[in-house]
Nucleic acid binder design. Structure first.
Ligand SMILES: [Zn+2]
Ligand SMILES: [Zn+2]
Ligand SMILES: [Zn+2]
Ligand SMILES: [Zn+2]
Lengths: 138, 138
DNA sequence: CTTGAACCTCTAGTCACTAGAGCTTGTAGA
DNA sequence: TCTACAAGCTCTAGTGACTAGAGGTTCAAG
């Protein structure tokens, strides 16, 4: 059994974040000492590690909730889990696509001004004022 | 002179968002009719187009504030503008880098389970439970 | 002059935390 | 056993960039 601070150190999840996860129902309510302090065991550690890893991979709290629900029922079909993973992957790919367009446009814009001119003649400001100057949609 | 709804149509910025920008000081307080409704002119339209375009490129409200400040002083050096653009580009590149790592990992994980099994044996859940199964850091 | 779409302000909700106030508990050293 | 004080507790509010809704007012077409 260890304290919330110990759990925090082991999982690299900040203490207030652990309490937040508990409040959101991701983490079961921890056992308490007689003085009302939370105490965790191996199970709590594993669950928090799961949450941490899923968050690192960009899954939403809601998605993680569903995944945990599934984990708690070993006999259920895992279809929902793959669905969630695939939809998360699609999200990530969409974000990458959009960011690549932004990168192109921002690179182009940045290269057109060395920062030694005056605001009035600045290409950065002109480019922001007029999307027509952009080389493609974004 | 046109209404907030007109401005919204022309810029594709939603009405409550326009009011929000005004509240945040990005948009000067609009003139009002005797009945207290906002009325805009060409200047308002141009400024909102600028904001919209900058937001589309991912600049923060704070960054856009600085850019507008600069735009309002045509004789100032534009160094700050390029700085902001370059830092935004760096942000975008960092995000792409991170997302590409996630994409790799999520692709790998998704491919290891067809969703026809049972939760207990699901690779997706196993992979989330154990970062050691990941092929690299992310 | 009537109708109703569009406008107004204000408050609260979103997501995933993070910060701070003000209080209580656990634990290590004297 | 006593005493510090680090670490814990709860609760509220703030972050960014909006979005939704309530409840009321104004504009403009017919
Ligand atoms: Zn410039
Ligand atoms: Zn553009
Ligand atoms: Zn599976
Ligand atoms: Zn991993």
């Amino acid at each position: 059994m260890f304290s919330i601070g110990e759990l925090s150190k082991r999982t690299k999840v900040k203490v207030p974040t652990i309490r937040y996860y508990e409040q959101m129902g991701l983490l079961a309510e921890a056992e308490r000492t007689s003085g009302n302090q939370r105490r965790y065991d191996k199970k709590g550690l594993e669950r928090l590690s799961f949450i941490r890893h899923a968050r690192d991979l960009g899954f939403s709290i809601e998605a993680i909730s569903s995944l945990i629900e599934l984990q708690d029922h070993p006999d259920r079909s895992c279809e929902a889990a793959t669905d969630i993973a695939i939809s998360q992957l699609a999200d990530v790919r969409a974000k990458i696509k959009r960011l690549k367009l932004l990168e192109k446009e921002l690179t182009r814009i940045s290269e057109c001004c060395d920062g030694h001119g005056v605001s009035e003649d600045c290409y950065v400001l002109a480019a922001l004022a007029d999307h027509e100057l952009c080389s493609r949609e974004h």
